[in-house]
C-alpha cells in the first residue's frame, strides 16, 4: 500500500494525462466519425466510396500498427507533431502534451473515428426512411435533413455501440500510452521497477485497474442515463 501512497503524485499525473488523451481523442473521433457518416450516406458517390474505403482500411488495421506508424514511420516521412508544445503545470508535476501526446491523439482519432462512423451508420439505418422524406418534403436541404432529423435520431439508436466504442477508446489510451506517451502505464512501470517484492507490486496494478474500472463504469452509467432520458422521445 505504501507504494501507492508514496507515488500518488506520479500516478495522479499519469491518470490526468490518460483522461486528457481520452477526452481529446473522444471528441475528435466523434467529430471525424460524424463527418465520415455524412459522407457515407450522402448523395455524392465519390464521397460515399471514399468514406467506405477509409472505414474498411482503418477498421481492419491493428491499432498498434497505427500508433507505431505515428511514432516511428511518420517522422521519417516528415509527419511529426513537434509544433505541439502544451505543458500544463500542476502542483504534482507537469502534464506534457507534446509531440508524442499529439501523435497518440491523432492515431486514436483516426482509428476510433472509423468505429464511430459505423456505429452512427447502424443508427442511421435504424431511422425510418419516412423521417428523412418528411424532412425533405418541408424543404430542408441534405445537410439540414441530416443534422436536424436523421442524426439526432441515429444518435439515440447508436448509443449502445457508441458507448462501447468510447469504452474501447478509453482502454486503447493505455495502448497508446505504452507506445507513445509518458502517462499512467509508463508511470506504473516505473513504480513497479522500483518496487521490491511481488505482493507489493500488486498494489499499484490494483489501483490502476480500479481507476479504469471506475472510468468505464462512469461512461456506461452516463450512456444508460441518456438512453433512459431519450426513451420517450423516440
Amino acid at each position: 500500500m505504501d507504494v501507492v501512497v508514496d507515488n500518488y503524485q506520479f500516478i495522479g499525473i499519469g491518470f490526468a494525462a490518460t483522461v486528457l488523451l481520452f477526452l481529446i481523442s473522444g471528441i475528435g473521433a466523434l467529430l471525424l466519425g460524424t463527418l465520415l457518416v455524412a459522407m457515407r450516406v450522402g448523395p455524392i458517390a465519390v464521397m460515399r466510396r471514399a468514406a467506405a474505403t477509409y472505414v474498411t482500411l482503418v477498421r481492419n488495421t491493428p491499432l498498434l500498427l497505427i500508433l507505431v506508424f505515428f511514432s516511428l514511420a511518420a517522422p521519417k516521412i516528415g509527419i511529426n507533431f513537434q509544433f505541439v508544445k502544451i505543458v500544463i503545470s500542476t502542483g504534482w508535476g507537469d502534464i506534457r502534451m507534446t509531440n508524442a501526446f499529439a501523435g497518440a491523439t491523432v492515431g486514436l482519432i483516426l482509428y476510433t473515428a472509423s468505429f464511430v462512423c459505423e456505429s452512427l451508420r447502424s443508427g442511421v439505418n435504424a431511422v425510418p426512411v419516412g423521417q428523412a422524406e418528411a424532412a425533405r418534403a418541408i424543404g430542408l436541404p441534405f445537410g439540414g435533413v441530416l443534422s436536424n432529423v436523421v442524426l439526432p435520431q441515429a444518435l439515440r439508436a447508436a448509443l449502445p455501440p457508441l458507448a462501447s466504442t468510447l469504452i474501447a477508446l478509453l482502454k486503447n489510451t493505455t495502448v497508446a500510452a505504452s507506445v507513445l506517451v509518458l502517462e499512467s502505464a509508463y508511470a506504473l512501470k516505473q513504480i513497479l521497477d522500483k518496487t521490491p517484492g511481488t505482493v507489493e507490486k500488486l498494489w499499484p496494478i490494483g489501483v490502476f485497474i480500479l481507476v479504469f474500472v471506475i472510468l468505464v463504469e462512469l461512461l456506461s452509467f452516463a450512456s444508460g442515463r441518456l438512453e433512459r432520458r431519450w426513451r420517450v422521445a423516440r
Binding site: G130, A134, R234
Partner: peptide, 9 residues
C-alpha cells in the same frame, strides 16, 4: 404521408 412521419425526437 399515410404513416404521418412526424419527427419522432
Amino acid at each position: 404521408f399515410q404513416s404521418f412521419n412526424l419527427f419522432a425526437h
